[in-house]
């Protein structure tokens, strides 16, 4: 228990530091928020133009929740990239902390940041589309799926964080490749049924597929979470697998970086 509380306390270092960074870069954060709102609006307007309220809501949900998942994913993956850029990576790696503690702190902040960011976009979109009928919506189902999906994305984010650790110049950009592949196969803006069969196989191993299914079922159909077991258990299995896998893979990558001298590089 003492060890656990010590680790939780130490992981707060990363939450506090990332909060300070957000505060100091508030202008950029505002710009990023404008970018995200504009992107979500542009996609949702396709549904508005079609005059189909169901399509509008479906695209809106896709845009908002994809934004959430990519913000969480980016924060975790970029944790290493930012340290590399600032030159502080060696100091963090020298500190007497477990790597799981570092990743726990970074992911906790990423989830809170992602929720706040997404809430702002949600409010803007609801104000922009007053015709939306959310009378049947079951927000509890939506929130539960967002949180469940976060575990899997935290694991994928940890694995993605290996890229900037090992590939100094382009590692951070390579994480976007991973993100776009998830976007392609997860049915964010269209049904996965239109994908070729081999891509549909991939969609079943993407946690985003199940998150979006669950959120859409909750907000459009008002389905309670108790009736969505088929989407819940894959998320539970993926979360329970991907987080330990992420910690393990990051540890292996760290050892490789220490053997080859890759921690030293800055920029």
């Amino acid at each position: 228990m003492t060890v656990l509380s010590h680790e939780m306390k130490t992981s707060f270092a990363f939450i506090e530091r990332n909060f300070y960074l957000t505060r100091r870069y508030w202008g950029w954060e505002l710009a990023f928020l404008v970018y995200s709102v504009a992107g979500a609006l542009s996609i949702s307007l396709i549904g508005a133009q079609a005059g189909d309220p169901r399509l509008l809501l479906s695209l809106m949900i896709g845009a908002i929740f994809w934004n959430y998942l990519s913000v969480v994913f980016s924060w975790i993956a970029e944790t290493i990239a930012v340290e590399r850029w600032e030159g502080t990576l060696e100091y963090t790696m020298m500190a007497p902390i477990r790597r799981s503690t570092q990743l726990l702190g970074s992911t906790a902040y990423a989830i809170v940041y992602g929720l706040v960011h997404t809430a702002v976009i949600l409010v803007v979109l609801i104000l922009f589309f007053p015709q939306l009928d959310l009378a049947r919506a079951n927000p509890l189902t939506a929130v539960a799926f967002v949180l469940l999906g976060s575990f899997s994305f935290v694991g994928i984010g940890m694995i993605a964080a290996i890229l900037p650790l090992l590939y100094v110049e382009r590692g951070a950009q390579m994480t976007f490749v991973l993100q776009s592949c998830l976007l392609l196969v997860s049915g964010v803006y269209y049904s996965i049924s239109i994908l070729p069969p081999w891509m549909q196989v991939l969609s079943h191993i993407s946690p985003a597929t199940y998150v979006l299914d669950g959120v859409r079922a909750g907000l459009i159909e008002g389905v309670p979470i108790t009736e969505l077991g088929g989407d819940i258990w894959p998320l539970l299995v993926m979360g329970a697998t991907l987080i330990p896998l992420g910690v393990w893979a990051f540890g292996r990558a760290e050892r490789y970086a220490k053997r080859t001298g890759k921690l030293k590089r800055v920029g």
Binding site: H6, K9, T10, F12, A13, E16, R17, Y20, L21, R24, Y25, V82, E86, G87, T88, E90, Y91, T92, A95, P96, I97, V266
Partner: peptide, 21 residues
């Protein structure tokens, strides 16, 4: 001197202090 350059000395050192418990 590797730091988060946008952060102040107090903020940077607070991070270091927490890492060391």
């Amino acid at each position: 001197a590797a730091f988060f350059k946008k952060l102040s000395p107090l903020e940077n050192l607070s991070f270091a202090a927490r890492l060391y418990g």
